[in-house]
Amino acid sequence: MTAPIISVRSLDVHYGSVTALHDVSFDIAPNEITGLIGASGSGKSTFLRSLNRMLDHLPTVRMGGTITIGGENILHEKTDVVRLRRRVGMVFQNPTPFPKSVFDNVAYGLEIQGIRNPRKSFLSLTRLRIQHQELEASDDPIDQAVVRSLKEAALWEEVKHRLHHSAYRLSGGQQQRLCIARAIAIRPDILLLDEPCSSLDPLSTRCIEQLLLGLKKDYTILIVTHNLQQARRIADHVGFFHTGELVEFGTAKEIFGGPGKTLTREYVEGAFG
């Protein structure tokens, strides 16, 4: 196995008096898709949110153990959270585009780093028509990043004629791919996805799965899913969570083809969850 990009050791997470994760330890290899499965409330989202310190925003959360990303313990209090989140992107369960144009949505992550958006629209009143040919030929860093991200997110062909439209006018599946484009526009190393397909139809789901398989050469992907078929289809490694503990971690083949632990076998065979 290549050197892990993420190493988790004895991770504990408590919400006040509730223990959401207990003694979780495992390594994640770069440029792989890691699927995280488990019943509702087993701590999958909590785990994902530890990786980009999203739990900082909840006052009652306490965390213990270490998470090492790129050689640095990101749970250390001196960690620059803003920098961390530029390296570890996240996509949420429901599509959450900003009430901005398609273009501005993707440009946002770069804009907040102080890069000037050449196609700023003012209070959504002056929505400039953006010509896609002009955009593809542009050498402005934001223009280039937007085009690249939309192409990588397999959305470019569908939106290139309406980049200036509000993102809310896209379909649910398109909005979710827009959120992926928005996350990869700032070129993170790691992409966290928390049930990204749970509000989508089978076709959009398939589209996003294809997209993730294409993205894994550039990004390390962690995906939480309740859809075991999905994990089987796209994941290289799978982690099974149960009541806050990582019960088993192995290749997708191992987990789905006759796992070592009874609990895991029962879960993947649909006995509970």
């Binding site: 925003h57 920098r83 530029r86 992107g89 959450t96 900003f98 907040i112 928005r182």
Partner: peptide, 13 residues
């Protein structure tokens, strides 16, 4: 929605 804030924080804002 709280999700708007979270999406923005997740991008390093």
């Amino acid at each position: 929605s709280h999700r708007l804030s979270e999406s923005s924080w997740a991008l390093g804002a």
